[in-house]
Amino acid sequence: MRIIRYLEGAEVTLAAVTDDNTVHPLPFRDLMEVVREAKHRQMSTVSYIQTLISGKQGIHKEIGELNLLVPIVAPEVWASGVTYEKSRKARNYETVEKAAGQETCYDRVYNAERPELFLKSTAARTIGPNDPVYLRSDSNWQIPEPELGLVLTQEGEIVGYTIGNDMSCRDIEGENPLYLPQAKIWKHSCAIGPAIRLAETVEAPYNLQLTCRIYRNGQLVVEESANTRQLKRTYDELVSFLIRDNEAFDGTVLLTGTCIVPPNQFTLQEGDRIEIEIPEIGVLSNPVQSLIRQTIIHQ
């Protein structure tokens, strides 16, 4: 079972999507309200939703016909770094330290007990499916980073899985790791969606296939796949460090790192389209636009 949010006229609707792709509107504003009410009733979230939609036909539209919104208004989106071997290799390729044959900070964090975690985005900065991701104006080497996202309660319970696009500037981070916030955080640099797969309905969370496709002028120019079984750390491990001596909020999303990195000579261009697919969740699709052009348009 998946959870989506969509716009019907001027009204935002929360809905459950069953395995036969039937869309059932729910009488709540967001997923975390459903989770809290299910706990109050001492029921699982899925069981409670099933009582709400039992005997109802759903709407006469398929999910592809809906104006989808970000599936949860996450107060914060955090991200994990260097959790896959390919990510470590990509970071090392960027850094000037590696050219001198030194062990890098990425080598060290990959093998360390403590993972790399950083604040990626806030609700105001996070976009959903079909909205444009922006290119940072002072970077010449930008890529998407496809990731599995964990949807958390304030206690750190994983209630769902979503898809995340952690847009990144490889040249800025490679110049100096202390530039990480600038390499990761700018307007429309984080997309999540198109849905949240409830955790109870995922039998093998460490066997989820991710595929990233990038289209340019209508032609497929990048297609790569990976699997969450390649992840070096467990989800619970990452969550435990996130909530350690830290205040988390209901609906926080934690991105778990990427194992898909486009070829080193590749950089995104305005007009590209990024698709990230996890079959159990859906396809997160976003066009690429120039932040400079958007600024001029809105002045």
Rank of each mutant, 00 (worst) to 15 (best):
R2D: 08
R2G: 03
I3E: 04
R5P: 13
A10E: 14
V17W: 00
T18G: 12
D20V: 14
D20N: 15
T22H: 05
T22S: 02
P25D: 05
L26E: 09
L31S: 07
K39M: 13
H40V: 03
H40A: 12
R41C: 03
S44Q: 07
V46W: 07
I49F: 12
G55K: 13
E65Y: 02
L68Q: 11
V70I: 07
V73R: 15
A74G: 08
A79E: 00
R91Y: 15
E94K: 01
E94I: 00
T95C: 14
E97H: 06
E97F: 15
K98E: 12
Q102D: 05
Y106S: 02
D107N: 11
D107H: 09
A112W: 14
E113V: 05
E113T: 10
E116F: 13
E116I: 02
F118P: 01
A123K: 12
A124I: 04
R125A: 10
S137K: 14
S137R: 14
N140P: 00
N140H: 12
W141M: 07
W141Y: 07
I143N: 04
E147W: 10
G149M: 01
G149F: 00
G149W: 00
G149R: 03
L150S: 04
G156Y: 00
E157T: 00
G160P: 09
T162C: 14
G164T: 09
D166Y: 15
M167P: 05
M167R: 05
M167E: 12
C169S: 13
C169R: 02
C169H: 01
D171P: 01
I172T: 07
G174N: 04
L178W: 07
L178V: 07
P181Y: 11
Q182C: 03
K184C: 05
I185K: 10
I185M: 13
W186C: 10
S189V: 01
S189T: 02
S189P: 06
I196V: 15
L198F: 14
E200D: 11
E200W: 00
C212S: 12
R216C: 13
R216D: 11
V222I: 15
L231K: 00
D236R: 15
D236F: 12
D236L: 14
V239F: 09
V239N: 02
I243H: 03
E247G: 09
F249M: 04
F249A: 04
G251R: 00
L254A: 05
L255R: 02
T256A: 03
V261H: 08
P263K: 01
F266L: 12
L268I: 09
G271E: 11
R273N: 04
P279K: 14
L284N: 07
S285I: 09
S285D: 03
N286P: 06
L291M: 11
I292W: 06
I292M: 03
I292F: 09
Q294Y: 01
T295L: 15
I296V: 14
Q299C: 06
